[in-house]
Amino acid sequence: MVLLVVDTQKLLVNDQLYNFNAFTKNIENLISAARKNNMEVVYVVHDNGKGSSLTKGEEGFEVYEDFKPLEQEKIFTKEVNSSFRGTGLLEYLKDKNEKEIIVVGLQTDKCIDATVKCGFEHGFHMIVPAYANSTIDNEYLSGENSYKYHNEFMWNERYAECISLDEVIKKIKNHNTIES
Rank of each mutant, 00 (worst) to 15 (best):
K36D: 03
E91P: 05
T24F: 05
H150M: 14
K173T: 00
K173H: 05
F153I: 14
L3F: 03
A33Q: 10
V63H: 13
N21A: 03
T8I: 02
E100N: 05
N176F: 14
E79C: 04
G57S: 05
D95R: 14
N156G: 06
D109V: 00
I136W: 14
H122W: 05
Y131D: 11
N97H: 12
Y64M: 04
N156S: 07
E157W: 13
Y43A: 06
L70D: 13
Q107M: 13
V80Q: 02
H150D: 05
V128M: 09
G57C: 05
S83N: 01
R35K: 01
V41D: 04
L90S: 10
V103I: 09
M1V: 04
E79W: 08
L141E: 09
V42N: 07
V128W: 08
G60D: 10
T77F: 15
I75M: 07
K170I: 14
M39Q: 06
E161D: 15
L90G: 09
Y131C: 01
R85E: 01
G86R: 12
I27A: 00
H122Q: 14
R35T: 04
T115F: 12
E179K: 15
F120N: 10
K74C: 03
E73N: 10
I163L: 14
L3V: 00
K25Q: 15
T77Y: 15
C162N: 09
Y149R: 09
D95N: 11
G105F: 01
E58L: 01
V63P: 07
Y64C: 05
V2G: 09
Y131Q: 02
Y131F: 10
E59T: 03
T135A: 11
H46Y: 00
V44N: 11
H122D: 10
V44W: 04
N81L: 08
Y18A: 02
E73V: 04
S146N: 09
A160H: 13
I163N: 14
L89G: 08
R35I: 07
Y159S: 02
D47G: 13
V5K: 12
T77I: 06
T135G: 14
K99I: 02
Q9N: 11
V5D: 13
L3Y: 06
E73A: 07
T24M: 12
V45H: 01
E73I: 01
F23P: 09
E144N: 01
L12G: 03
